[in-house]
Each structure stands twice: as structure tokens, then as C-alpha cells.
Amino acid sequence: MRINCPNCGDRDVREFHYRGSAKLLNRPAPDAGEAAFVDYVYLRENPAGLNRELWFHEMGCRSWIVAQRNMSTHEFAGTELARNAKRGAK
């Protein structure tokens, strides 16, 4: 598997660590309450198609990356830096 790091280009998956759903970008407000945090920390969608997810270029530039990847075929539909994804979302 190869991942296109926005900084470093096409790299082998062994340089990366997977962290799960990109939902983690959206941390609830501090006063959102337990239920909101339970949802944020634990509950997941698991789509059989494109999954928006976080990868960490741990043994590269150490960027957190948001990727769109198909969970059934492993094909990537795109990657961007998490900090850009987060800023774009606002």
C-alpha cells in the first residue's frame, strides 16, 4: 500500500501509523457533556466504501494526514494535511 503524503509524496504504508476515523478532527466543545464525548471517542461508522480517516506520517515528516480511502478496495481517493482539513472545515 502506498500513501501520498502531501509533503513527501508517494510513500510506503510502513512509514505511517493509522489512527482511525477523521471524526477525531471534531472534538466536542469542552462543555458538550459526556454523551458527546462518548460518541466522539467510541462510536464509528465503518462505511463499506470511502472512509475519511487519519494517518500519521510517523517515520516521515510527522504530519497528520486526512485520507479518503475505500475500505473494501483499499484505494485512496485523496489525502490532505489534517491541519488544512481542519482549517477548511471551519
Binding site: 500500500m1 504504508v13 501509523h17 493509522y18 482511525g20 465503518n46 480517516e53 475500505m71 473494501s72 483499499h74
Partner: peptide
């Protein structure tokens, strides 16, 4: 392997 998947197959690393 460390990533989400429904493919029932993994990779080399």
C-alpha cells in the same frame, strides 16, 4: 495490519 478494511487481505509490511 493496522487500518480499517473489509478486503479480507493485507499487505506486505
Amino acid at each position: 495490519d493496522g487500518y480499517n478494511s473489509y478486503a479480507q487481505r493485507g499487505n506486505i509490511p
